[in-house]
């Protein structure tokens, strides 16, 4: 994959294999993400998309291979990576407010035992404004719609002030307005030199949203600029026989 070899790499994954109990979920993955791009990861259910994100974040221990963030191990660069987990991975009936969830984004830089102060609160307010949720800050999170929940998660990631953002299905179950707003924020982030990686499942919007795409099915089937690799042939390989695409 030499398309972007002249640009600095935000993330470089080489020979990454992840297995649960000796059953591989990801086989020998190579992925390179240049700085300042938006990359989509697509693939069928169980193809290892979420596992890929989690192993970049060090949440899942790989069996082999390495992940480097700006040329160094993730552990040393933790603060430079922001994370939006799958919305459905948490209990939305947890007793907390929108503002409180966004403040959680500052916990990483706060370190142990310290409580968020005025600076952290200001950052949280700004992030909520950016996602258009400033009127909801006192709202109990169980009362949010899917789109609002996702904005709330996005604001929490923005507070992390990272250079790379990893997002797991941010458009899953959100309204069209929220989807549009999120895409706008992603583009604005890119223009400020941030790098964004998005696990995605809606093939219709791939060409509009992403610069680069990784097509995943346990192995990397194809990777590169959307215009080059997002082909019918690659889709068939990625999704096997059951690609149900009106588009292609």
């Amino acid at each position: 994959m030499n398309t972007n070899s002249n640009r600095e790499l935000a993330i470089q994954i080489s020979d990454l294999t992840v297995a649960y109990e000796e059953t591989a979920v990801l086989w020998d993955i190579d992925v390179e993400v240049p700085v300042g791009t938006i990359m989509g990861i697509i693939g069928p259910n169980g193809s290892g998309k979420t596992t890929l994100i989690k192993s970049i974040m060090g949440i899942v221990e790989p069996s082999a291979g390495s992940v480097r963030v700006f040329g160094r191990p993730f552990r040393e660069q933790r603060r430079r990576v922001g994370y939006v987990p799958q919305r459905t991975s948490v209990d939305w009936d947890f007793p907390t407010t929108v503002f409180d969830v966004v403040l959680m984004g500052t916990y990483g830089s706060l370190g142990w035992f310290r409580r968020p102060g005025a600076a952290e609160r200001d950052a949280a307010h700004m992030a909520l404004e950016r996602v258009g949720m400033q009127d909801y800050l006192k709202r109990q999170i169980s009362e949010l719609s899917g789109g609002q929940q996702q904005r709330c998660f996005l604001a929490r990631a923005l507070v992390q002030e990272a250079d790379i953002y990893l997002m797991d299905e941010p458009f899953q179950g959100v309204d069209a307005r929220t989807e549009h707003a999120i895409v706008e924020i992603l583009r604005e982030m890119r223009s400020r030199g941030k790098t964004v990686i998005v696990v995605h499942h809606d093939l219709q919007t791939v060409e509009r949203y992403f610069d680069l795409i990784t097509m995943l099915n346990v192995r990397v089937v194809a990777q590169g600029p959307v215009a080059e690799v997002f082909t019918e042939e690659n889709l068939r390989r990625t999704y096997g026989g059951r690609v149900e695409l009106g588009r292609v």
Binding site: K54, M57, G58, I59, R75, R78, V81, Y83, P85, Q86, S89, V90, D91, F94, T96, V101, M104, Y107, G108, R156, Q160
Partner: peptide, 11 residues
């Protein structure tokens, strides 16, 4: 308790 993945992500 609220978000294990995020907590693991920030270390």
């Amino acid at each position: 308790t609220f978000d294990r993945d995020f907590a693991a992500g920030i270390g």
